[in-house]
Design a protein around this nucleic acid. Structure first.
Lengths: 195, 195
DNA sequence: TGCCAAGCGGACCAGCAGTCCGTATCATGC
DNA sequence: GCATGATACGGACTGCTGGTCCGCTTGGCA
């Protein structure tokens, strides 16, 4: 077993600076597509080489920023208290998870757009570990209500319902309030699980 | 009233060649993102300037190709016989429309991906006339079943359900057959309209 | 303090969408 | 059939992108 090399201090500092700069830029830019890697490097006070050395490519950088923002939610779902944590009746938990995802995406709209737009060339969001993970969990939860046959598909539909661009269109384009949206979403989840 | 200038013969010929070449390239390429405008110009036997003169930019070219492929469906919905045409009970019609959209997207998977990926920088699919149109129609149809309050949101959800990347993931990634997918979709639409 | 793996940065590259303009072609009036 | 001006053509060109490369610097260990 090889000893895992400790990350050098300057490397760690730069990683942090890059993640923060990227988060800031994605959060403030109107369209995430127009944030370039050079912009991020400059904002982080770092050379472009460093940026690519740390993160490999743009898609991965975006995923990492996203992972930071998503960590608390993942934590809550994996081992937090009800209604998100494991100690919750399936139906309630599904509703809570969908609601929580919606909230995170509404709060981090720009970043989530960046992820869903440029997250991967061929793969898209559906290939990401995050999607697969949450889909699997929802599938299992839904299966206890509707049976395994329909669960996989229903879980996809539930997640399609909280896609960042849809949420943005409904709130910014149609002017629906966040609370009205969340309530529609809740009704929809309820109805969907009623069969 | 100014007489509308007739399109010159060579211009018309080139437009057709470009649309056909683009359709072909998007249909055969694995990832639509890797089809460049130069590729299309070359395949159409036309200079790049011509291509941009006709279509303005990439997003618009994709929309035009898409419009050609979608024309028959739009026609059917606007004035065809049941179950797609206007002379159909709302519930049946909604199901038929969603199913027909799914079929078109499954049959033209690559092109639809191109549209949804690169259809517009900020706007995305939700800004497109096609989306707005079909959403409006579905909203009205759904309203007769569920009331106007929920109709707008439900129409969005129904359409989110037939997004090209989701359909692709479920069929190619998870290996679901087209018929199984369509049947899941039909069940889902039924259930959704049952409230 | 000396050493060297690890890390750094920015010049560099290939490829992209989109522009520009000198040249060629079409349609029309005669 | 021909002259003529509007229309369209094409490909060199621009500016910018994501990503690579490599000579130089730095951090951490002995």
């Amino acid at each position: 077993m090889a000893v895992v090399r400790e990350e050098r201090a300057d490397a760690a500092r730069n990683r942090k600076a890059i993640l923060e700069a990227a988060d800031e830029l994605f959060a403030t830019s109107d369209s995430p597509g127009e944030v370039s890697m050079d912009d991020i490097a400059r904002a982080a006070g770092v050379g472009k080489g460093t940026l690519f050395r740390r993160f490999g490519d743009r898609a991965n950088l975006i995923r990492q920023v996203y992972a930071v923002r998503l960590a608390p939610l993942r934590e809550q779902i994996q081992s937090g208290p009800p209604p998100l944590g494991p100690d919750t009746p399936p139906r309630t938990r599904v509703a809570a998870i969908i609601d929580a995802i919606a909230v995170v995406k509404l709060d981090n709209a720009h970043l989530m757009l960046a992820l869903e737009e440029g997250g991967g060339p061929t793969s898209g969001i559906y290939g990401s570990a995050d999607y697969v993970g949450v889909h699997g969990l929802l599938r299992d939860l839904v299966a206890t209500e509707l049976g395994v046959g329909r669960a996989g598909w229903v879980a996809h539909v539930l997640l399609a319902t909280v896609r960042a661009d849809l949420l943005r269109h409904v709130t910014e384009g149609e002017g629906m309030s966040h609370s009205a949206l969340r309530s529609s979403l809740r009704d929809f989840v309820d109805d969907t699980l009623d069969h």
